[in-house]
Design a protein around this nucleic acid. Structure first.
Length: 191
DNA sequence: CCAGACGTTGTT
DNA sequence: GTCTGG
DNA sequence: CCAGACGTTGTT
DNA sequence: GTCTGG
């Protein structure tokens, strides 16, 4: 049985071979996300895909919705009875240890399901939000095949909601956690 | 073969 | 360290 | 996203 | 026209 614990990690996985100079690695390579279709092939992710899988806590995220050549950010969240404005969920991700107790991490992305394809209608990708029933399996010492199986089928069945938010989100240095940012904006919404 | 990348997303 | 690109 | 390529082979 | 690279 693996030990699981919640630890802080910096966003942007740094693989072992780049540990000597993480800053220059991150300048050249954006590892904020990893396409799950290729994590076992990419040199930056392969080692972590084998034995450093993790889950990342969140209560919402933004996806761009394109309409008439303009991008409108949508706040996506998972309401529950207890937390109608957005309950916690877990992204499937990979991590690596830079130094003792200093971690870096990345969030897996996959082809959007029908709900997220309507929102993220250009690239049609979405983060892999893992089904509760697979949290433990994800940490196990499992084969590449099993990992692929979990990734292919493991997106949560719980309902997501989404609403448009201010384009201020795209301004430099804006704090996406400010309440006005996640507030729904008035517009002729598709949803 | 050797040099260079190694990654994803899409606003300003 | 290993793969990709020229 | 926009600018630029759009092709193949593999030695010293 | 479409893909690739930055």
């Amino acid at each position: 049985m693996n030990l699981k614990r919640i630890v802080p990690a910096s966003w942007g996985l740094v693989p072992n071979w780049a540990k000597t100079d993480p800053e220059s690695f991150r300048k050249k390579s954006n590892t904020l996300n990893a396409r799950l279709e290729s994590i076992f092939e990419k040199s930056s992710f392969r080692d972590s895909a084998r034995d450093k899988r993790c889950l990342i806590l969140a209560d919402g995220f933004f996806e761009p919705h394109h309409e008439q050549n303009v991008s409108i950010p949508y706040f996506c969240f998972q309401p529950s009875k207890e937390y109608p404005k957005g309950d916690l969920f877990l992204f499937a991700g990979l991590y690596n240890e830079l130094d003792s107790d200093l971690y870096t991490t990345t969030i897996l992305t996959t082809e959007a399901n029908s709900f997220f394809a309507e929102i993220h209608n250009k690239k049609k990708r979405m983060p892999l939000v893992l089904d509760q029933n697979l949290y433990l399996d994800w940490f196990d010492d499992i084969s590449e095949q099993s990992v692929n199986e979990i990734m292919a089928t493991g997106f949560t069945n719980k309902e997501f909601l989404a609403h448009p938010v201010s384009r201020d989100l795209y301004k430099k240095d804006v704090d996406a956690n400010k309440s006005y940012i996640i507030k729904e904006v008035e517009r002729n919404s598709l949803f």
